[in-house]
Amino acid sequence: MAAAGASNLSVVVHKAGDLRLENRPMPEPGPYDVLLKMHSVGICGSDVHYWQRGRIGDFVVNSPMVLGHEASGTVVKVGSSVTTLKKGDRVAIEPGVPRETDEFCKSGRYNLSPTIFFCATPPDDGNLCRYYTHNANFCYKLPDNVTFEEGALIEPLSVGIHACRRAGVTLGSKVFICGAGPIGLVTLLCSHESRRTSQILSDLSAPRLEKAKELGADFTVEIKKESPQELADRVKNTFGCMPEITMECSGAEASIQTAVYATRSGGTVVLIGMGPEMVTLPLVSAAAREVDIKGIFRYCNTWPMAIAMLASKKVNVQALVTHRFPLEKALEAFETTRKCVGIKVMLKCDPNDQNP
């Protein structure tokens, strides 16, 4: 277990623009929790958003909050009622834990529960720290051939898995992915490797589109100064057809409009990216062509599938990690993410183990 008086260095946002490294008290696990020595934690766009703006929609930073929710670590102590994990187990953390068994939990859609605890979503602390406690039922053992970094990347990978399920991706689907950031790229990996689909990706960034090609995208389209309809036409001409499924990963209004125009009649648009609260959509085009528009909120029941995919080496999520920083350099790591340098920035929380 953690040594008495051990440092619990943590990355804490106090308010918009105020990000600090500070020592927090050493946590103790409750009866159904485990104490984890954190190893790898990825920086998500939402972490940067809380740092820069102090809120995401109705979730407002009203008191200091530890950031981080893409995480893995090692069990160092178990609660009195925990039987599924033991000291020394390497685990990936699912950050959303239902606080009660409500109608959404009973139907298997616990991600929609209004009472869910979620790491680094006000008022709940995240796990970008040395030591952290979490419900044991939402910590998943990692196979020996899955690295800590891959374990941390299960969280964004789960977004892609959940989106593909909601979209109804199947063998041979033609898929258009708007945005080649981390979420767009994991969505590419999930759609391609699980169902052998064909994909086309769009983005403003040529380097990110190059990464998409490396990861298996069949076609890419670099966005220029053009209308959503013009971009949709370029997607059709480049792809050779209108896609059946469009995954919108940016949240930008113009990109959502493009998604609707680009999707073939009877197809599906899945909204993954979180953008402005209010956007203008070409709903007449969607309705007249029976284009279904679906949303996703995080994920549910995805960790076992993600672990199986990683263990079988069907997906290469580690290729997304372009920068690594020790926890002590978290402020530099956040600045790197804010500037959109690279793809995924990973923080290494264990000073004695900086390996992937």
Rank of each mutant, 00 (worst) to 15 (best):
14 H>D: 06
161 I>Q: 11
127 N>H: 13
135 N>Q: 06
250 S>R: 04
306 A>K: 07
201 L>F: 03
40 S>E: 02
83 T>Q: 13
64 P>K: 08
105 C>Y: 02
321 V>Q: 02
351 P>T: 11
262 A>H: 10
258 T>N: 08
133 T>Q: 01
137 N>S: 11
323 H>D: 14
30 G>W: 01
305 M>Y: 15
137 N>F: 04
106 K>R: 15
272 I>D: 05
158 S>L: 02
211 K>D: 03
172 G>F: 01
119 C>S: 14
318 Q>G: 07
328 E>K: 09
192 H>S: 04
102 D>N: 13
114 P>Q: 09
277 E>I: 09
304 P>W: 05
231 L>G: 07
244 E>L: 08
91 V>L: 09
305 M>C: 08
333 A>I: 12
113 S>L: 09
141 K>W: 02
198 S>G: 04
23 N>S: 12
87 K>R: 06
221 V>R: 02
223 I>S: 10
171 L>G: 00
33 D>K: 10
200 I>A: 10
138 F>G: 05
148 F>R: 02
93 I>V: 15
67 L>S: 09
307 I>Y: 03
194 S>V: 12
321 V>P: 01
152 A>F: 04
353 D>E: 11
127 N>F: 14
50 Y>L: 06
204 L>W: 10
197 T>S: 08
109 R>M: 11
136 A>Q: 04
